[in-house]
Amino acid sequence: MIFYVAHREHAYTQAVVLLYHRTDLEAWFRLVRYEDAGLLRGVRAGVVIWSDMDRLTSDELSRAAGISAELADNTGLTQLNHPTASLQRFDLLRLLHADGSNAFRVFRPDELEEAIRYPVFIRDETGALYREPPLLHDRPALDAAIARLDGSDLARPMVVEMIGTPGMDGYFRKYAAFRVGDTIYGQHCAMSKSWFVKNSPEQLLPAHIEEIRTYIDTNPDANAVMQVFEKARMQYGRIDYTFVDGRLVVFEINSNPTVLSDPPTPFAIYDPKPFADLQADALLALPQATEADSLAAIDTAHQSALAKLRRHYQMRRLKLTLRKVLRKRK
């Protein structure tokens, strides 16, 4: 059995795979909220994946680390990631700059150095970044932005030196690859005219489509990516990276990445099933993934969480379909 431990508000990242594309995975997969992680003490075989460490408080991390230690001592469970030993975003980026892998630095707002390379931007260490942050081009602009942090909703702000250059075609690129145990697979190559690459535009050039297909099919950076995961002491997650002057540059490793965002609709611009298969097959290949050992309390909580997710994605599917229909009528 695969026990996926996640923050209670972010248990949706595997949902589209489980509900639509690989329903066979559900027999071997259990969502576990951190507040229920203690139930794992009663399981003797399977694999535990710890995620969302960046979203936990220090007390929650300490409790999870204690449970992880108990599981290591008293059960035969395989564990991927560690609540406190796996590096979070800030510490990983500091390490990668210190060992010469990354050419950009990160700072805490109260620990700035004079020799910062501009432009920089400010982001939270926790969670995902959905909107393009403003670039700050000098120290007065940075100081003003830091002064505005008081009262903001950033839990652990960090100052990041911007890095990245567009390709010959004018597009910036961001690559993403998953690690699931011993498996590395390429998930996407997003392209944008903006330095802040979140998703590719809906209408891609034919050459871009072929480039993305080649990246996914050949998985060219698997060895280099695995080395970064090992430095981070993470056995599960998604790494986001780019290339600058031919060198791989890492932005982050997300411990609870969304595999597929949207449920299938008749208007999908690509077939998501192969991506679901990559994820599901890698999960099922984990040691003890198909050991039929769980607890009734874990199963009940999982079914309750999945039922809520099912309702959510049914509504999302309806909204996406209606939106496309209305656009076509215009």
Rank of each mutant, 00 (worst) to 15 (best):
M1G: 11
A6Y: 13
A6W: 11
R8G: 03
R8N: 11
H10Q: 14
Q14I: 00
Q14D: 08
A15H: 05
L18M: 09
Y20V: 00
Y20N: 04
Y20M: 04
F29W: 04
F29H: 07
L31Q: 09
V32W: 05
E35W: 06
G38S: 13
L40C: 03
G46Q: 04
I49L: 04
M53L: 07
L61S: 12
D73K: 15
G76K: 05
N81M: 00
T84E: 13
Q88M: 15
Q88E: 13
R89L: 10
F90V: 12
F90Q: 09
L92A: 02
L92Q: 03
R94P: 04
L95K: 15
L95R: 15
L96D: 10
S101R: 14
S101F: 08
F104G: 14
V106N: 02
F107T: 03
F107E: 00
F107A: 13
R108M: 06
P109D: 02
D110S: 12
D110E: 14
E114R: 15
V120I: 00
I122H: 00
R123P: 06
E125M: 07
E125P: 10
T126F: 11
G127Y: 07
A128F: 10
R131T: 11
P133F: 02
L135H: 09
L136P: 01
H137D: 06
D138M: 05
R139T: 04
R139F: 08
D143H: 13
A145I: 08
I146A: 11
I146C: 14
R148S: 12
R148A: 14
R148V: 03
G151D: 01
S152H: 05
R156D: 14
V159T: 08
I163V: 09
G164L: 05
T165Y: 05
M168N: 10
D169V: 03
Y171R: 13
F172P: 01
K174L: 13
Y175Q: 09
V180I: 14
G181F: 13
I184R: 00
C189T: 10
A190G: 03
S194E: 15
F196C: 01
K198M: 09
P201V: 00
I212L: 12
I212G: 14
I212Q: 14
D217F: 14
A222S: 15
N223I: 10
M226Q: 08
F229P: 03
G237I: 01
R238N: 06
D240V: 08
Y241I: 08
L248H: 02
L248E: 02
V249A: 07
V250L: 08
E252P: 01
S255H: 08
V259W: 01
L260Q: 04
L260N: 01
P264R: 06
P264D: 02
A268C: 07
I269D: 12
Y270M: 07
D271G: 07
F275Q: 13
A276E: 05
A276Q: 02
Q279G: 07
Q279Y: 13
L286W: 14
L286Y: 13
D293Q: 10
L295F: 06
A297P: 10
A307G: 10
A307H: 10
M315R: 12
L320V: 05
T321R: 09
L322E: 09
K324S: 14
K324H: 14
V325C: 10
R327G: 12
